[in-house]
Amino acid sequence: MRESIIEPVVWIFILIIAALLSGCLDTTENINPGSSDGHNNNLAPQPVVSATGIISNPPEYVDQTLVDAVAYAGEHVTLDASQSYDPDGHIIGYRWFFYDNTVSEQSMVSRVFEIKNISSLKGLPLIYTIVLEVEDNNHSYGFLEYRLGVIPREYTLYFDSTRLSWTKPGESCSGIRAARGILRDVSRLNYVLEKTVFLQPCRWNATLYIEKPVLAHIRSVTLILYNGTGEKITEKTVNLGLVGFWREKAVSFSGKINREEEFRGIELVITGFSLGEKINVLYGDGKASFISFDFLERF
């Protein structure tokens, strides 16, 4: 009786072994390495991003190995995932995860990317990381990390009393007086940023609105840009000539910065004389003295 029970069991075991050896029974699980859920024979969807509103030829200082695209701050950038595809099905859902913890479920999104804390930047571009998730009809997911580099078109700073300001000040002025009514040959004013700002190679231009008595004479006006340690970055002088019978003048400067710099402030030097009356540098309103750094113009 015992032999009749054991014999069928032995034969079943022999048949299983034979099937395995002949390849008739496959015990491996086919999981596509691209599938996010481990379903058999299910290929993961492939996210694809295209962008408009980006710079086709970014400046040389941008390391394009760090980013997928580059855009100017304040510009609308449109990200399009509609070309995403699924090798064995179709896409049924999109989700964009943004840096500010917002989520969009549209295939196409449009956003403005800003540079808000300019003084905290230690280099450019400022990189925004966006994650795209796509879902297919088998509920598998594909992910793509998209890195958008953002750079400024320009910085504009306004002269205001003893500082440089990011916003246009109210109407005011700084007066340069002769000491005790005697003739003063050179007068200086300093304008300082609250925090240093990182500059890429650029061109800059500045306009100072100066008001003086008719009989006061200004021979030249010099702007000296300096860095966080007080070292000179660049200097520009405008000579106003011998004839100075004017009361008000806009004095313009231009120059370039050839390398990366940490900009802190400006020293204004005026040479000439005034017999006790003020020479004013005007701020705000329609005569806002300013300096602008242009990162678009190449040289």
Rank of each mutant, 00 (worst) to 15 (best):
R177F: 15
I14A: 13
T78I: 11
H139T: 06
E277R: 10
E29F: 15
G241M: 04
G265L: 00
E235W: 08
L296E: 11
N42S: 00
T229K: 11
L148D: 08
Q83E: 15
A19W: 01
Y191S: 02
A250R: 02
D26V: 06
G244P: 08
N117Y: 10
M108Q: 15
L148R: 01
A178D: 15
S172F: 05
L208W: 10
V197H: 05
A44D: 07
L268Y: 10
V134E: 12
C24S: 12
E135Y: 06
Q64N: 03
R247P: 05
E261H: 06
I151H: 04
R298M: 05
V9M: 11
V49D: 04
S161R: 07
S274K: 01
R153F: 08
V150D: 03
T102G: 06
V186D: 15
Y128A: 08
V214Q: 15
A44E: 10
V214D: 14
I182Y: 14
W96G: 11
K232G: 03
R259N: 14
G181H: 06
N138W: 11
N239I: 04
F159K: 10
K116I: 13
I115Y: 14
V197W: 09
T271I: 14
I257E: 03
H217C: 08
G23W: 13
S56C: 12
E60F: 13
K232P: 00
G228H: 04
P45T: 13
N239A: 07
L199C: 02
T196A: 15
I257K: 01
Q83F: 10
E171H: 05
L193Y: 00
C173K: 02
V112S: 08
T167V: 04
T156Y: 03
S119M: 02
E235V: 00
A51E: 06
V9E: 04
T102S: 13
D294G: 04
Q64S: 10
P169E: 04
V70T: 05
L208D: 07
T222E: 02
T234V: 11
R163V: 06
T27C: 13
E248I: 05
E154W: 01
D294M: 03
F273T: 01
I233R: 01
E231G: 08
A178T: 12
D136I: 06
S165K: 12
D185S: 15
L242A: 13
L148G: 11
R219T: 11
I31G: 13
I151T: 05
